[in-house]
Nucleic acid binder design. Structure first.
Length: 938
RNA sequence: GCCGGCGUGGCGGAACUGGCAGACGCGAUGGACUCAAAAUCCAUUGGGGCUCACACCUCGUGCAGGUUCGAUUCCUGUCGCCGGCACCA
């Protein structure tokens, strides 16, 4: 039999032809374009479904097989929901500002826009080859000027707002300014421009720069001071993990920790709402927990101690009940009091320690955790509750960024304080007794709950109270005396939003000659990046962002920059902000732009936004768990800000979130632990050997990486099997949420399944349809069950078991090779049509092809989901396992609708059961309808 | 250290709310078809035992206990792997 007889065999070449043809056809017919309310063709009677992928950063390396995993999952859901009668919004776009393109530009001088564009084109081509039903008419990149316009606009809205604690929401800062104009309050302002020291002034008596500073202290986007890791040699700010022992990880250059004026977001104002509203969303518990821990709410009290010679020193503590046990205090090395002491001491010990501690990176501090360092400041504080004088120390285990940067140390009941006290021989006083009354051993801190002891004086006694009661009583006493108050603290810090980079959104703000900042008007947006010849960082002791090199762009006039003439005369000289926004900016709101991506007058029309976002936001959002905290928290923050300002209608952006697992790959290790490229490993009789040497290898599971030579690309797989097989394999591998290893060998399973589907429908030699004339009841039952299960499984994102069900249906219908009579076995026309509609979300091309060969003229992606006759799901009788003494001994067939009593009667009459019972009387009979019977005998 | 998740055949995995462990796929073995091979189709495939018999017995979901008529599922302890956080007062 000649091979070319099988001209209609479903092989990689045919799959490829089918796929590319349908992809072109879908595109040509604009099949996946979804109209907005008001557009022609919009059907308002349908419910909406918004299913979103975390959009990719298009790198030059292109896609690997991990990328399409989540995209395939959302595509299946999108196709299914569409078939179920929803208006489905399923868009794709590009997170396109970022460091790799900038670094490439530094090396080659090629503008990042050029490399980014080609990377986007490659990504789009690769994604389109997988047949996703994205509405490509909604595509955009975060670098598009029209998108940047609205990113800058949102930033301006934050800049122009403050958080009103009384109403618990953001409001225009102009309202606060008007209020201050009317009431002329006393405000805290710096004594000199940019200075750190503050003093109180009447609002009306403030100079303009002081007014601006006072308002900056309330703005949601504000200019703040943040200590950064500046590397003069590299000319860049480094993340903590890029600094090792005070040197840059890259190059080993010295790194300075210095304070920098940077744009910040007052995300801390939203801490409580970001925490509370986690209850509104359907997200993985692990992700909610991570966000909650990141926000880090803790309840406690602030307590004012009197520092002899310096006035009050306020601390935050979660254990006010242990106040009587405070035997010393500690302030962070960066605390202002430390600098004051250092300035007047004679030995220099404090100054030396503070300088040493300041230049230790956060990472170094963490690495040396446990070994406590510190010096005594030589001054004393007075414990407000008992008037006791206790020494004040500075130590780097106290962090300036949390609470007030100062603590009261209670070594008996805090592990860190205990270690420190032991190291420096400071007194330790027990003020909490174990709940069971046992004595404290004193060899480690007792930090748990207990009964207060040694905690009383004339006015206030905590002795005998449990922690919560003791805390409440002491706080009440402190509040009464004006010595402290109840306080909730958060770990969450304000968000540093400036980057000393080129390839990011410019800030729409300029500085006048006095150093005051002024916003660019909305009409002048977007502020676009200037062209640069040289993108390299500037080597300097003082941070100079790359944009500083664009002198003409930076130094301009208020009119040129688009500043409102009521703020500055058009001819006034101004300097543009040279920092840019971080990569997060574009990803904070892209899901909103998809609702109405071409809108020239608003980020999205109110109508489109309220239709697609609905009551709860994006209906399904799928992406990696690596974004569990930052991206998702930042996006929620922007969304809440927009909600407060009346720009969006939902409290939360993403109703349901799901993280796909990572696709790993096998890697091969020699006995000495060195790695061998996967391509050089061969399997012989169950063991793996290196092809060249024959040495035994150990197979391990690892991330895909170039160095391990275990990267698999979609192209390779498509070339060998086609896109439908790739999609199907990725979904069949296992649960979407789990990480799972790519196993090239297993792909053949789903490929063979598609071949069987193909053969079931038509003759491989002639291409003629092969349809059963009458429906086999057994096949019908399998098919009905499969369709029912597939729908159910897609709803719960269990694609692997949905595919199993499809395979079972096909296996039930598959006719033996020899059976040439198409009347026996196989699907009828109607059955095949229903099967294809259930297959289409997973393998849309082959489903479309066979659908059209059935004579259908409309695309299968416009067809409705097949109805299921639920009565066929139930058999008339069911086989129930019978357990005797908890072990399955036999099975008995009973009518499906039999009552438990009837089942019991049938079972007890069964000869096999009687034999097993051996004459014993069942003491108890448990019948679980349709499940099983359990007989308990003596 | 703390928090979360996961441990099931040779391999990937299935088992809805505590009710027949191993669906489906890979691999393997045997068979049909073929001159032969590939492809395809059929059958078998957790370990052990027993048998003429796929009648049956027994062990088995990381390990050790517990709750229950019944546990992969719930509880306690423990080991291993993965992810996150990490001096946050």
């Amino acid at each position: 039999m000649a091979a070319d007889e099988f001209t209609q065999r479903y092989d990689a070449a045919l799959a490829g032809r089918i796929e590319e043809r349908w992809q072109a056809s879908w595109m040509e017919r604009d099949l996946f374009r979804v109209p907005n309310p008001g557009d022609p063709g919009f059907d308002a009677s349908k419910p909406k479904f918004y299913v979103l992928d975390m959009f990719p950063y298009p790198s030059g390396a292109g896609l690997h097989v991990g990328h399409p995993e989540g995209y395939t999952a959302t595509d299946i859901v999108a196709r299914y929901k569409s078939a179920k009668g929803f208006n489905v919004l399923h868009p794709m776009g590009w997170d396109a500002f970022g460091l790799p393109a900038e670094q490439y530009a530094v090396q080659t001088g090629v503008h990042p826009a050029v490399t980014t564009k080609s990377a986007i084109d490659a990504f789009r081509r690769q994604l389109q080859r997988l047949g996703f039903r994205y509405d490509w008419s909604r595509e955009f990149g975060t670098i598009d000027p029209e998108y940047v316009r609205w990113t800058q606009w949102i930033w301006l809205r934050a800049y122009g707002s403050y958080y009103d604690e009384r109403s618990g929401r953001a409001r225009p800062i102009a309202e606060l300014e008007a209020e201050w104009d009317a009431q002329n309050p006393s405000v805290e302002v710096p004594s000199s421009p940019g200075g750190a020291a503050h003093s109180s002034h009447q609002w009306s008596a403030c100079a303009p720069w002081q007014r601006q500073a006072a308002l900056d202290m309330r703005r949601l986007a504000y200019l703040g001071r943040q200590t950064v890791n500046w590397c003069p040699k590299l000319g860049t700010v480094l993340a903590n993990e890029e600094v090792i022992d005070g040197l840059s990880e890259r190059g080993g250059h010295p790194v300075l920790r210095l304070p920098l004026r940077q744009w910040m977001f007052r995300i801390t104002a939203y801490a409580q709402r970001l925490l509370d509203d986690l209850a509104l969303v359907e997200w993985p518990d692990s992700t909610k927990t991570m966000q909650a821990e990141w926000i880090g709410r803790s309840e406690g009290a602030e307590i004012h101690f009197d520092l002899e010679g310096f006035g009050p020193l306020t601390v935050f503590t979660t254990r006010p009940d242990t106040l009587f046990g405070a035997t010393y205090m500690v302030v962070a090395p960066e605390h202002p009091i430390v600098a004051a002491i250092a300035a007047r001491e004679s030995t220099g010990a404090v100054a030396t320690y503070a300088a040493w501690a300041r230049n230790r990176s956060d990472i170094d501090r963490q690495a040396a955790r446990g070994e406590k360092t510190g010096v005594a400041l030589g001054i004393f504080a007075v414990n407000p509750v008992n008037g006791e004088r206790i020494p004040v120390w500075t130590a780097d285990y106290v962090l300036m960024g949390y609470g007030t940067g100062a603590i009261m140390a209670v070594p008996a009941h805090d592990e860190r304080d205990f270690e420190f006290a032991q190291q420096f021989s400071l007194p330790i006083r027990q003020v909490v007794a174990a709940p069971d009354g046992s004595a404290w051993s004193g060899d480690r801190a007792m930090s748990g709950d207990g009964i207060a002891c040694n905690s009383s004086h004339r006015e206030c006694s905590l002795d005998g109270l449990v922690q919560a009661e003791a805390a409440a009583r002491i706080v009440a006493w402190l509040e009464d005396k004006g010595l402290g108050r109840r306080l909730v603290n958060f770990k969450l810090r304000d968000w540093l939003f400036s980057r000393q980079r080129y390839w990011g959104e410019p800030f729409p703000v300029v500085f006048d000659e006095t150093g005051m900042h002024h916003p660019v008007t909305e009409a002048a947006l977007p502020v676009t990046l200037p062209e640069l010849v040289d993108y390299a960082p500037v080597e300097s002791d003082r941070p100079v962002p790359p944009l500083g090199k664009a002198h003409e762009w930076v130094n301009t006039t208020a009119g040129e920059a688009g500043v409102d003439s009521r703020l500055l005369p058009p001819g006034a000289k101004v300097r543009r902000e040279t920092n840019t926004m971080p990569g997060w900016a574009g990803s904070c709101w892209y899901y909103l732009r998809y609702c109405d991506p071409q809108n020239p007058s608003r980020f999205a029309s109110r109508e489109a936004e309220s239709y697609w976002m609905g009551d709860r936001g994006v209906d399904l959002y799928i992406g990696g768990s690596e974004h569990a905290v930052l991206h998702l928290l930042y996006a929620r923050f922007w969304h809440k800000l927009l909600f407060d300002l009346g720009e969006v209608g939902t409290k939360e952006p993403f109703a349901k979130l799901f993280h796909q697992g990572m696709i790993t790959s096998f890697a091969f290790e020699r006995a000495d632990g060195s790695l061998v490229p996967s391509t050089d490993a061969v399997e012989e009789a169950g063991t793996w050997r290196e092809q060249a040497t024959g040495a035994t290898l150990t197979r391990v599971i690892a991330k895909m990486s170039k160095s391990l030579k275990n990267v698999v690309t979609p192209e390779e797989v498509i070339a060998e099997y086609g896109a439908d097989t790739l999609r199907l394999y990725e979904m069949a591998m296992g649960p979407l949420a789990e990480s799972k290893p790519w196993n090239t060998r297993d792909i053949t399973g789903v490929f063979r399944f598609l071949q069987r589907v193909w053969r079931l429908a038509l003759d491989e030699r002639t291409g003629e349809l092969l349809l059963a004339r009458v429906a086999d009841p057994d096949v019908e039952r399998h098919l009905t069950r499969a369709i029912h299960k597939v729908g159910h499984d897609i709803e719960r994102l269990a694609f692997n078991t949905a595919i199993s069900a499809l395979i079972e249906a096909v296996n039930a219908a598959t006719r033996p090779t020899q059976m040439k009579d198409s009347a026996a076995g196989g699907f009828t026309r109607d059955q095949l049509g229903r099967f294809l509609r259930a297959l289409a979300p997973f393998a849309p091309h082959i489903a479309e092809e066979l659908w059209s060969r059935l004579g259908e003229t409309q695309s299968i992606s416009l067809a409705a989901w097949p109805e299921v006759d639920l009565s066929l799901l139930e058999d008339e009788s069911v086989e129930m396992p019978v357990q005797i003494q908890g072990k399955v001994r036999t099975r008995v067939r009973v009518p499906a609708l039999a009552t438990p009593a009837e089942v019991e009667r049938i079972v007890l009459a069964d000869p096999k059961v009687l034999e097993q019972l051996g004459g014993r009387e069942p003491k108890k009979v448990i019948v679980v309808p349709k499940r099983m019977v359990n007989l308990i005998a003596e």
